[in-house]
Each structure stands twice: as C-alpha cells, then as structure tokens.
Design a protein around this nucleic acid. Structure first.
Lengths: 217, 217, 217, 217
DNA sequence: GCCTAACCGAGACGGTACGTCCGGTCTTTTT
DNA sequence: AAAAAGACCGGACGTACCGTCTCGGTTAGGC
C-alpha cells in the first residue's frame, strides 16, 4: 500500500548544501493535478492538452514542466494522487461474513470520490499500455491497493473458519480487482453492485467453499 | 465468432454502375497490415506513425487512407486480421476432463502466431479505451471468442456431470479471459501456463465444485 | 544586381534522380511572403508571430518551416522578394542632367510599392543586426541595387562631361543610398524629396563639380 | 550632448522621509552594465537573455529589474554609459586643415574604448528600430555628438576661408556620421581609416570646394 | 491500339499539440 | 531593505504527426 507516484518529486530531491531561492509553491502541484483530473474526466486523455490543464489551474506551462517531464507523467501522478486520497485501508469493514465485508467495501468506495476515480481511471486506460513502466505504475496505483484489501478480508474469513484453506490466497484475491479492472478499462461497462454480486456468488465464494446461505442479496 | 473487422472494406462495397479504372492491388492490403503489426509490436500504438507504416510497407499514405479511414481503424483491422488467422474454434480439444481441455486449448493457441498476437494485443491496449466503440470492437475480437470457447468446454463438463450446475455459466466462462486480458493488457505480464494453472486450480475448478484430483500438473 | 534571396530555395535544390511526390505549391510562397509583409508593416518584427503569418496566408506552420528555417529567414526573404518587385533597373530615367535623373529615379520608386517597401524595411531593421550574415543579406537586398542605379547615372554624367572624373565613383554612388538607409532605418524619418534635394545640392552635385545652375527645384 | 540614459535611475530618486534599510549597492550597477556589454558584444541583442546578464554579473534578476524597467532600457543605459566614457567633446583637435582635424578626431576616438563601443553599437542596432523612441534615443546618443563635432570642425574651416560657404553646413556635417553609422550598424563593416579617407577625399572635401592638395595621406 | 478512370508511391498541404525558452514579476532566505 | 536565487505566468518558437490533396506515372477495362 501507500503508493506514492510523486515520490520522485517529493522525496528524491537532493537539497544540496542549502535550499535557496523561492520555494516551489506546493499549492500549484495540487491545483495542476486537480485540473488534470477535471479535464481528464471531461474530455479524455487524447483530447486533453497541457495548455488546457495549465489554463484551468491558472498556471504557466513552465510550472507544469518543472514538475513533470511530460503530459503522460503528469496524468499518472494525478491519478496516483487521487488514489492516495481514496484508499484508506485500515478501517476495513467487518460484518462477520466475507460476503458482507466485500459488499460493504464496495459501498464504502462508491461513496467519496470513488465514482470520479473510476471515471479518471477509465479515461486513463489509453496511456497505460504506452510503455511497460507506465502500465506497471498504473496497475500499482489502481489495482494493487484493491487486491490488498481483498487479501485482508479473505484472510480474515479463513481465520474465522468461514473459508477453505485449500486455495492460494494470492491468486483468489486478484479475481475481483482484475475482473473489475478489465470491465472498467477495456469493456467500459460499470463495475456496479450486480456485477460484484455475480462474481461473489458464482466465483469467489464457491471457490472458497462458502455455500449460498445468502441473506437477501 | 468469425469477427471480421475488415468486413466493411471487403464486402460492403457498392460496385456502382461499373468497376472502371485500375483495380485495387489487394496485395497492398496485406503488406500494410503486416507492417502495421510489425511497428505496433516494436514501438507501441502511440509512437507508431502512419508514415512509418507506409514506409515499411513501401506504400504511400494514400493507399492507407484509401483502405481505412484512420490510423485507429487500420490498427484494429490489423489485429482482427491476426485474430482471424489465430482463432479456429470448432475443433476444440476433448480430453475428458475440464482441466485437460483448458490446458489443451491453451497449448493450441500458444502455437501458431499466438505469441506475436499477444504482443500486438498488448500494444493495442492504448487505443481500446480511447473511444467506447473501439473498446467494444477490440473486446469482441479478442476476448469474446475466448470466452465462447470456455463456455463450450464448461457446458460439456456440466453435461457429463463433472461440474456443478449451481453457478452461472455466463459469469464463470468470463473469468479466465477477463483475467488473462487484464494481465496482458494492463499488467503486461505473460499469460503463460503457470498463470493458467493457478487460475484453474484455485479459482475456476473449485468454483465449479471440481476437486483437486489432478494429474501431474 | 539581380539580388535573389530565395536562391537557396529556387535554384540550389538538387532534383536528384527525379522530382517525386507532390510539387511545392509556388503560390504558397507568395501568399506567405505577402502575409509576412502585411503583418510586418502592421505590428513590427517583434510582435509578429509565425502563427499570425500562417493564419493570414491560410497556411500551416509546416508549410512555412518547410520553406524557411526560421522566422528571421522568412522575413528576410519577404523583403528581398519585395525588392525584386520594386527594383527594375534597365529602364533608368534619362533627363539629360544628373540632377534630373536622380529626382526622376526617386519619383519612379516612390510610385509602385515604394512606400510600402520602405515601411517594411523600417520594421525590418530590428533583425538586420542580429547576425552578420542577415545584415549582409539585408544590405544586399536593399541598398546595393539602389547604389547600382546611382553608379549608372553618375557614370553617364561623367561620360557626357557633366561631372568631374576626379572622384571615386564607387564611393560617391554610396552616399545617397547609405544616408537614405540610415535615415529610414535608424532615424526612422522619411526619405522624402526635400531630404533628397538637400543631399543632391549640398553634397553629391558639389562633390562631382556640378554647379548650382538648377532649375526650379 | 551629455546624454544620460541612466538619469531616471540616478537622479530622479525621491529619498523619501528617510533612507532606511540596506543601502543599494552601487557597485552592482557597474557590474551589471559591464556584463550587459560583454554579452551584447558576444551574442547580440536578440540572443542575449536577462538571465545570462545576471549570471555573468553574479547578480539576481531582481537587482536588474530594480534598476531598469526592461531589458531594452538596461541595454540602452549600458551603451549610454559607454558613450559617456568615450565622448569628450570640447578638446577637439585643431591641426590647421579640415582634413587633418577630421583624421585627428578619428584617431582620438579610436583610442580608448572606441572599438569596443562600436561593437556594442552594432549589436544594439537590433533594438533601435523596434520602437521610434528608442531609435531616437540611440541616435541621439551615438550619432548626434559625432555630427556636432563635425559641425564645429567644418564651421572652423569655413571661418578660416578653407571651405566654401555655398553649402548647407547642417547637411554636410551629417555625411560622415550617417555613412559611418550605416556602415557600422547595417553593413557591419569597420569604420576604419581607409573608409574615412575615402569619404573625405571623394565626398566631403570636394563638396566643400577643398582641392586635393593633400599631404601624404 | 488508343482513351480514360482509378490506382500507385511520394510528399506537400492545413491544423494542432508538444515541450522549450524567455521576459518581467514575486517570494524566500541571507546579509 | 536590499541582496542572490529561483519559481511564477504568459506566450512564441520550432518540431512532429494526422488526415487530405496533388503530382507524375502505371494498370486496367471499354471503345
């Protein structure tokens, strides 16, 4: 967890003997990234221009390119920033059943910026495959935190005897994030509650040996 | 099945009053599509330019745009052409067990141009998400035939009593294609035999109620 | 004479084995150069942008930079083109006296594009001194043809015994063009008839030993 | 004479109620102006950047813009500063002949920083024509003092009966400065002794009715 | 055996975004 | 309060690429 795309910006800097001159205005970072997400959601990655972003953020192009070497890196960082805002593991739901936990996790992330995040992710797909490293970065920012949450919830279910120990946790925890990612990014169909329920009841829970003693739905 | 992206080109043509003038040189189609795949694999969709493709095919840009209305459509058609070469459903394997069938299907499609095809698909991801319609088209060309094959094999397993009837065939048949697509397109990691075996033994077969009475592997 | 700034474009090209591909649209050259002069006169060299010129000429920036390597070269060529249009040596006036010839030459060049040409030259001064070679080029285009005309007229006056042979024709022929150039470019005051008459009667004619048996003025 | 571009900076300052805080470091003025001339001569006005000048002077841009409102004004001031060092009218030469006086004036101004000054002036031409007012200012600083010296020397020659009274002193006194300015600024060729001698013997002296009873040269 | 339309490779065309650079302003820390 | 350092906005430059159009030349029918 704790993905930090901006690490190169925030942490890798060698302050040198001393930090002289005017400080980077950190508020510009946020303003630019916010504008990036806005435009990304509105027009998509291809039709977004750096000038649009700079104008929306009331910034100059210089301020943009001082921070990121290219439009692509800027967008990746914008999405990573969003993810940092969105993913607050730790206060994971605990309803007593795996099925309940998974549904509660979905509800929780649908609230907040969840929707907007998914829109941004979808707009972003175009650039993920441009180069392997950006694809990795995007995956780390998007799917890994989600898989981590799944891993924790399933581990809990195993611990309380609800789920079988016969399967590889690592693989099973990837099922919902991967299929959700594919659905959002490639199929561009919504990752909604019915889709999640279908996956739970027909794939995940059966694979874990959890029978259909389901409540309402 | 039998996806044909080029249908519009090859079949929709209205011959008009009569076909006059020089005939279109059909060998140029193949040369251009081959060059497209070459470049796509080498540099990716974004860095590929139409001029590059034309030069590689020793063709002019006019010949390209006479055949396809845009770079995107040309690339989609190139990949569809590949798919046509690769996917020969109908003679699906029949080994007696679902596990054996799935592995045999994998081996079959790994032969031929399978590797190259996957590289092309991966390079292609960039454009899939650009517009919903191209995403749909790409999905239809890539994943649906694969899911269809899964559907047939699983239906056979249910018919012979190997697999449970308790789950939704439609959803279960999507698991391997979706996760494979996500792995190839977004993670850009190989969809190889170990990954397939992991999915089969930890997700698909348990979900279908098929126990681990596996042979060697 | 016969200054040709565009020589590099029009004559230096090695056609290679054959001239292939679409031909340069020569009308675009003229359209761009005309637009260049328009904008140059309207806003001056510094405030003129290449995009302005391209838009005015209904051209793309590509067409501009295919012809000239920089804004500076484009402007120099535009002025040279103008000069080519303006300077039609050969049909020099012949009034019987040097004074009459010089005044007639002035009247002739004041007609036509003369005025516009001088405006362009004035706007252009900014760039002449940027680099030695552009300064040379500008000088060749602007002043040399003028000096050549002076040389011819003065030589005629010497031939018919009107002017002394005691002075260096080369130097004397430079007086009016140089002082006119300085006045236009640096002082930015008009090179008008009173100024010319002052030079003739107080400098050029006395230096050539021609007395003040002047007509009206 | 006594042009002082820097007047606004050095004399117009209102000391206010009291001069508080750190005193302005007057040595920075000179350092910046020196650096300005250096860079101006090295790369010309257009390619010179304010950052270059500040770096060379080991100053910040703030120190520059606290003193001059723009790059243009700074450069004009730098050249005016030079001029102040160079032009010391009053002790004009007096050799008994106009020809001797003019040559002696040339020798005097060639000494000192004359050469460097001319280089700077040449580099400066670019900005002179940008706006009329800077052109005027430059002309006043450069050419007018020179013309004034010519005027005095020629008036003396007329007074002692060496030169004719038949011509307009004002116009004749402009000949050498104007042609010298044109040669330096536009042609970028040296205003050297042979050039001066050519002008004197073929234009100025004949125009003033002074015959070729020249000494050695 | 011509005529003519449609093809071919090559490459110029208009338009538009990218990433760089610089002028003039503002901010931070040090003197 | 002035100094050096350097980030800030705005906007022009020159490059690259998409999809269209034009050039000279070639390849078929149809006459």
């Amino acid at each position: 967890m704790a993905i930090d795309f901006a690490a190169n910006e925030n942490e890798d800097r060698d302050p040198g003997p001393r930090a002289r001159g005017r400080k980077r205005d950190e508020s510009r970072d946020a303003a630019i990234l916010d504008a990036t997400i806005d435009i990304l959601v509105e027009v998509g990655f291809e039709k977004m221009t750096v000038d649009m972003v700079a104008a929306r953020a009331k910034a100059g192009k210089g301020a943009v390119y001082r921070r990121w070497p290219s439009k692509t890196q800027m967008v990746l960082d914008a999405v990573a920033q969003m993810k940092r805002d969105v993913a607050h593991l730790g206060h994971l739901p605990d309803t007593g059943t795996l099925r309940g936990d998974m549904l509660a996790l979905f509800e929780a992330s649908s609230a907040g910026q969840g929707e907007r995040f998914m829109q941004a992710i979808a707009a972003l797909a175009a650039l993920l495959a441009q180069q392997p490293q950006t694809a990795d970065a995007g995956h780390e920012a998007m799917i890994e935190p989600w898989a981590e949450a799944n891993r924790v919830l399933i581990a809990r279910a195993i611990a309380r005897g609800e789920a079988t120990t016969a399967v590889d946790l690592e693989i099973v925890a990837q099922v919902i994030p991967s299929m959700g990612g594919y659905r959002s990014l490639i199929q561009r169909r919504p990752f909604d509650r019915p889709f999640l329920v279908g996956l739970l009841d027909n794939v995940l829970l059966p694979a874990l040996g959890i029978g259909p003693d389901r409540p309402s739905t």
